[in-house]
Design a binder for these strands. Structure first.
Lengths: 230, 230
DNA sequence: GTCTATAATTAGATAGAC
DNA sequence: GTCTATCTAATTATAGAC
């Protein structure tokens, strides 16, 4: 047990301190963007002093990269676990589950999309890092899957790139704008029922009807509810 | 001609200067958020010096409010014009046109959603202003229209609040993340064909099939394309 | 590993000349 | 109305004690 010592943390308290800093920095960068977040405030939330952030992470930019790496690691674990547990099933089942997990992840980690929309609005070195290091592999995997499903008739006839931005816009926006949503609608976007309803809604748009309570896939899927005109 | 003098601008050059400052500030606030945008840089882009911004607009916060007011005025004119030109037609025709105009406006004015997502992630006085002054009237109008259409079966059976966030997420994200989109997909989100394809895609998700070239509504609407399983 | 103290930079706002 | 010069405050990063 005493042999669990990383290169960075010689003292037992260091790893815990690092983690508290990372968590405070995640919320700060997500809520106030890179420039708006101050190291002093992050340090204060983490219960340490500002120079300690420069000690553990060389600079503000390096701290930001550490935050982003951990965030995408979590996303990839979430999506990857469900992908691996779904081998040998049809593409449309896989994508259905992935969309639900993506909505749930976005609800529990709105910081992901807050940071992406902060940094990907104009070219910058941080956008370089985000896109090439983390987003492109996901984009390639998702659009490849979408292209297969569109040919099979399991998705609307929409070009994969457009479908990607429809999904990555529709799924998380209610949670990214959580404080606004609460005021406008009275709904609590952290409530499990609200999250489930939103996942159902995204699946209804993309795939047609789903079981409203459990989100289970219902093959063969009936026509989109609410489309009857007779 | 010489009588066209506003209260604020005693000299003929003042109105033009004010407008150049507003345009530079719009892009700065949208691309770099409130804290990231500096008055010195905005002034430089507008071709003036920094203290002139404090002269025309009392403070950075007041400049931000002037930018936001003008932006929502443009949105309301765009949506309002199409609403007024569509009296005495069915709700589903009205909403179909509004969605297309909203996609087009979002493509040409991504700053709108960049500013909203900057400010509505955490409570602040600027979020207060945005929500109560500009967003709530739009939210109320849109969700009321959605509720009528859902009852009539012209929209998927999704609660209006959720449908609002699906639409305001799906429609503009491709343009809000324009620089990212260009890198990932190779598509130019300022290209008219790309914008039209995206408007078609949003309408396909919400309403089912549309005429892919013109975006004309096709009543009675056929089933959602790509749903056939036989 | 964590602190105090501080250097160096930059920001928004104001004073005053023209 | 627009400029130059400057004030005050806040920021990141570093130096050095413990």
């Amino acid at each position: 047990m005493g042999s669990v010592v990383s290169e960075r943390a010689q003292r037992p308290s260091a790893d815990a301190t690092r983690q508290r800093i990372l968590e405070a920095a995640l919320d700060a960068f997500a809520d106030q963007s890179f420039d708006g977040a101050s190291l002093r405030n992050i340090a204060s939330v983490a219960g340490v002093t500002q120079p300690l952030l420069n000690y553990h992470f060389r600079s503000k930019a390096d701290l930001w990269r550490a935050v982003v790496d951990e965030l995408f690691d979590r996303l990839n674990v979430t999506l990857g676990h469900h992908l691996r547990s779904l081998v040998d099933v049809e593409d449309r089942i896989v994508v259905h589950h992935m969309v639900r997990r993506f909505v749930e992840f976005s609800a529990h980690n709105p910081q992901l999309h807050r940071i992406i929309t902060s940094e990907c609005r104009a070219d910058s070195s941080r956008m370089d890092y985000l896109v090439e290091q983390h987003i492109r592999p996901l984009y390639d995997a998702v659009t490849t899957l979408f292209a297969r499903l569109a040919v099979a008739g399991d998705l609307p006839d929409i070009p994969p790139a457009h479908l990607y931005y429809l999904l990555t816009g529709a799924a998380p926006t209610m949670f990214v704008l959580g404080p606004e949503c609460r005021r406008l609608s009275g709904l609590d976007p952290t409530d499990d029922d609200v999250i489930r309803t939103h996942a159902d809604a995204v699946c209804t748009l993309l795939f047609g009807a789903t079981h409203p309570q459990t989100g289970e896939y219902l093959p063969p899927s009936p026509p989109l509810t609410g489309r009857a005109h007779d």
